[in-house]
Every structure is written in structure tokens, then in C-alpha cells.
Design a protein around this nucleic acid. Sequence first.
DNA 1: CATGAATGAGGTTTCATTCAT
DNA 2: AATGAATGAAACCTCATTCAT
Lengths: 194, 194, 194, 194
Amino acid sequence: MNDKKLKIINAAKKSFSHFGYKATTMDQIAKIAQVGKGTIYTYFSSKEEMLKAIIDLFVVEMRDVAESAIPRRQPFIKSFNEVLHTITKFQSEHELMIKLSQEVKEIGTPEVIAAMKSVEDEICEFIEVKIETAIERGELRKCDPKITSFLMFKMYVNLVNDWKERHEPLDKDQIAELINTYFIEGIGMKNEDY
Amino acid sequence: MNDKKLKIINAAKKSFSHFGYKATTMDQIAKIAQVGKGTIYTYFSSKEEMLKAIIDLFVVEMRDVAESAIPRRQPFIKSFNEVLHTITKFQSEHELMIKLSQEVKEIGTPEVIAAMKSVEDEICEFIEVKIETAIERGELRKCDPKITSFLMFKMYVNLVNDWKERHEPLDKDQIAELINTYFIEGIGMKNEDY
Amino acid sequence: MNDKKLKIINAAKKSFSHFGYKATTMDQIAKIAQVGKGTIYTYFSSKEEMLKAIIDLFVVEMRDVAESAIPRRQPFIKSFNEVLHTITKFQSEHELMIKLSQEVKEIGTPEVIAAMKSVEDEICEFIEVKIETAIERGELRKCDPKITSFLMFKMYVNLVNDWKERHEPLDKDQIAELINTYFIEGIGMKNEDY
Amino acid sequence: MNDKKLKIINAAKKSFSHFGYKATTMDQIAKIAQVGKGTIYTYFSSKEEMLKAIIDLFVVEMRDVAESAIPRRQPFIKSFNEVLHTITKFQSEHELMIKLSQEVKEIGTPEVIAAMKSVEDEICEFIEVKIETAIERGELRKCDPKITSFLMFKMYVNLVNDWKERHEPLDKDQIAELINTYFIEGIGMKNEDY
DNA sequence: CATGAATGAGGTTTCATTCAT
DNA sequence: AATGAATGAAACCTCATTCAT
């Protein structure tokens, strides 16, 4: 990856992040990247191609991390936390992707939408497999692995991104603790509580 | 509320919903509403004013429903479901508001953003009070009511909106059942399970 | 002339006077005239027709006054002053016509331009005839009557309208005196001055 | 000053001159200047800014010329002619400025109007000083220098611009001769004429 | 007749993309 | 390869005119 191309991609991410896709102009990106506007077209044939490139890059990075973070034979909760902690590194990129996925649904071609969705699907499927294994091992009660993984992932995203828009941000350990509290234990009264 | 004005608002909602704010053109709205482009400007002085009007309308409707749906002395889970079931009526509008809140952050004035956030806050606060009461009554285990209400609301939204983008949509009862399963009971193994 | 029609004409004159032809909207005219916008079209088929009607009306009024003011056998200067004094009554209308003649040149059809010009031409021709007679009678030195009448009329307009935009307005007698001073006597040194 | 920018300014002048400010479209200007419509916005942020730029440019040019044309110790009439002859270079621009000043009153900001007026004031004041000197030297009879300079300037403008709208245009010498005839000598009968 | 909501042609402005340097 | 001036399609908005009431 060329140095100029990288500067452009980072500038685009920053501006998409701040203003969104449609509201970001090529002029802004060029100014932030400190290159001429025309230079962008040396590396990307259009604004949309640039968006796709950013998304694809994110998917690839995501996959690498997810794979490298695959934990071995461990209780479910522990490996789940490890994966999510790793994902935390991508917190801000994640945020951007969520924003773009909202916006791109409106603009983008079906391929882009599919690419966007694949990011979340990737993670969800990884969690899904973990949950299935955990159920088989008797670490978790019976439940629909698809829905469960989907909801777990969403709760993670909610805690990392949406919560901090309203209140003090939560740190990694707090988030892991909360997911465990609500999801695994439940807050309903248990027999043992009496 | 005038008939033409209503047609325009609905057309705008539909188009914003599908394409987003920036990607929706006045021509599109006019075509969907089956009115002339100029007619829109009879009722709204600009595209942004139309957006604000739609948001304000939503805030008002939301408040009415929330207030009218206040259930009386009932076990927490039941009244919680009632409120959410009522909210379900606004499912699609809700979706639109979430989308716009993402996009409007970039365009809108702070007042609009505040108004947007107030919708979710309204609901979260309502749930929060319910949870506090439930904890006092011993219906729920001790937990942070703020975080809990936030996560419950988010899970509801995730199940209603995000899930159906990937899989078969879930009906009201399924959603209530799932929230109960994951949140209240938890999926971790309990002593009693053995 | 109908009452409503008169109200509309006066409203149009007022607004044209203040904002000019192009910058005056039919809405403004309707609001000032306190009639519905559609009512204007009961009396005038278009904005341009309304302009023409106002101009024509002015031409007619102008002619009436000019004719009624025709002075009989008198020294030129005296009858000239009489005519101009009469014209002074139309000062504000005059002002409007000058403004419109500037603007309409750009917008209007040739017919309108012709109509506009006819106002000034009317007056100039009247003065022209007076000057010719005065020359024949030996009241004035030989000079081109066309240019002279044109310049006299212009000087009158300049003194009535343009001067007051910069300084204190001049009254009728001052204006008559000035035209006499500059035009008839001249300010160059004469033999007799020595 | 850039070549393209100059072409645009000249095209705008031509079109403003012919059709006026409001009736001139950006498309027309672009077509006359043989540039794309967007190119105009590379040099001027809006139509109104373009108008202001043209006016400012005119004010500057006017001042330069007025200053450079200051004639030395000469009989009044001669130096007056020199100044006016110099101004003749700006004949068409002048015409445009007068037209715009009429129209801009409705549109423009007070600063623009002030700038516009300053052009004429500049010239009038210059003439005023000349007249005062001439009176002191006994070259002219006693008269109000302010009114006299104003009327002389106006007569010049009338002869250069307004006359040619109705009849054959007059050349420099004819104009100088006419101003002299009417203003300095007067057309009233003098004793010596008998 | 009187009205003003409805209309759409036409205006100003934005911005992704091209291309000569 | 790098640039940014130039471009025009397409966006938002205005307003003279029409027409159902």
C-alpha cells in the first residue's frame, strides 16, 4: 500500500466519520490528505470505489484479527471475552462502519451493502460457533445460537458505541462484566437468591 | 393536518427511510406524494425544515403513546411488554428516526439532535423507573437501572429492526419471549439445571 | 375603473417603486392591495400586461395634463416653466417610470419599451415645439430644438429626482430658476459682465 | 487578473448591461464567456459577489483615471473637456454602473450602493473644484459650484448615454461643443445678439 | 367574481469527475 | 504521477400562472 493512497484512505475515513459519506466532498478529503483532488482519482476510480475499498480493507483486517484471536479449548465466556477485547481495537473503525452501513444502504449498490453486512456476519458467525460448542459442552443452556450470537454482538456494540453518546464511556472490563451479568446470569430472581 | 401536507410528510418519511436524508431529492418526494415539487414548499420552507417537522411530529406522537401506555401495578415483565408492544406501532418510524439521527448529526442543528435523542431517552427513562420499582419490590436482582434500561431498549430495537434485515422478522410474542429469556433468566447454567 | 382594479394598480406602483419590476412578486402586490393573488388575474392577464397598463395609464394622464397645461401666446420661458411645474405633480410617478424604463429595457418586449419611451418623447416633443416657436419669435438663439428639448427635460428630471438622492431636495421655484440660469443665460462671462 | 476570470467579468458586464442584473442568468454569462457554468463559481462565490467585484473594480479604475487625468493650469473649459474626454473611455462601463445602481438599490447591500454613488461623487467633486477655481479666476460667473458640477456631469452622461438610445450618437467634439453652448453661453438672447 | 393552494419551468448553486499541464 | 481549474448534471428553491372551490 502506497503512502499517498494510505493518506487518502485515512483522510476519507476521518471525513466520512465526521460528516458521513454523502456530506463528504472530494475537496475535503483532498485537503485533509494534503494531496491534490485529482490525485485521489489516480488511486480510486470514483468516490464509491473509494468507499468500497475502505470497507473491503476493514473486512480483511477484521478477518485477520478474528482468526488470529481464535482461542483454544477454554470455557466459552473466557474466549468470548478475548474475541471481543480484540475487536475493541477496532472500536472507532467499527463506529465508522456502522455509520456508513446506515448511510450506504441508501446510496450504495447491493454489492456494497453485502460487503458491509459481511463484517457483522463474520463476527456473529464466529460467536455462533463458540455458542454452539458451549451448548454442546453444557456450558450454556439450550438456546438459538443464531439469535444469541446476534444479540450478544449487538449488546457489545451498544455498550461500546451508543452508551458513550449519552453517558461516561465504559472500559473493557466493565463491558465484559455487563455482558456476563445480563446475558449469562440474567437479572431475574433465581431460586438460589432466596 | 392538511391532506396534501400529510401525503408529503408520508412521502418524505418513506423516501428518507429508503434513501436517507441527503440522498432523497425533492423531486422524489414530490413524485411519491403525487404533488408538484413546488407544493412541498407551500408547507415547508426548506428541506431541512421538513426534516425538523417530521422529527418534531415523531417526538410528540412518541410522548403521547408513552404516556397513554403507562400501565398500572403489575409485575415488571408484564408492564414492560405492554409498553414495548405499544412502541411496536412505531416500529417503522422508529427505524427512520434512528437512521436520521445517524445522518442528521452531520447536517442538523444541535436542537434537532437533542430532539432526536430525547425520543430514546424518553423510553429509556420510562423503563428505568419500572426497573427501579421492580428491584424495590424484589422482582429483579440488584443492577444499575440506567444501564439495564438502556440495554433492554436497545435489545428490543435490535430484535425489531436489525434482525429482520438478515433473517425472518420476529413477531411481538417472540420478541417478548426472547427478551425474557436472555435478560431476565440468562443463558448461563444455573444450579437448578443440573 | 373598478375599485379593486385601482387598488391593485396602486399596490403594484408602490411595490415596483420600492423593489423594482422583477423583484416585485405577485404575492406582494396581492398583499398590499389586500386582494387574493388570483384576483389580479381577473383584471390583468399577466404581470407584464399589468406593467403595460400602468405605463399606458401614465401616458394618458401625462397627455391630459400636458394638453390642459398648454399655455397661450407667452414668452417661451414662462410657458416652459408652467408645463414643468405641472409635470411636477407627477414627480413620484415619474420617478417610478424612470426606474421602470431602466429595468424594462432589459425585460420587456419591444412594445413595452416603446410605450415607456413614448412618455419622455411626448414631453420632449412638446418642449421641442415650444422651442421652435421661441426661436422663430426671436426669443431664443438658434440651436437644435431636438437636442435642446431633450437636455432641458433631462435637466429637469435630474434636478427633481437625482439631486435629492444626494442633497436637500429643491423646490419648484428653485428648479425653474436653475434651469433658467444655466440654460438660458449660461454661466460663461458675457461682455456686459465687464 | 486571470484570463478566464476576465472573460467572465466581461461577459457579466455585457449581459448586465444588456439585460440588467436580475434578468441576467448564470447560463447566459457562461455562454457569453464561453466557459462552463460551474467555472463562474470558481472565481465568484455567488451572483451577488460577482456584482460587487465588478463594481469594486469600476470604482478603482475610475479613481485611477480621475487622478491621472488631473490637468494643469488651463482655462476651465479646456481642462473640463479633458477630464470628460478621459471619462469617455469608460462610457459603456458608466452606462452599466448607472443601470446597476438603479437596480441594485433593490437588491444590494447599503455598502454596494454607497460604493456606486461614490463613483459619481468622485467625478462631481473633481468638477466642483475646477468650477470654484474658474469662478475665482473670473472665468465663470458666480454660481453654486455643487449644483453646477452635478448638472454638468449629468448633462455629459445624458448626451453620451441617453441620447444615443433615441437618435444618432454624438461624438466627443459634438458633446464638448454642446455643453459649452448650453451651459457656458446659454441660449437666451444676449444684448450683443441684437 | 374572488380566492389561494397547486404547479413546474427556470433560476442559483454544489460537487464528482475530467484533463491539460 | 500529481495537480487543480474547468465542467455540467443534478440538486434546492422561487414565483408567475392556473383552476377548483
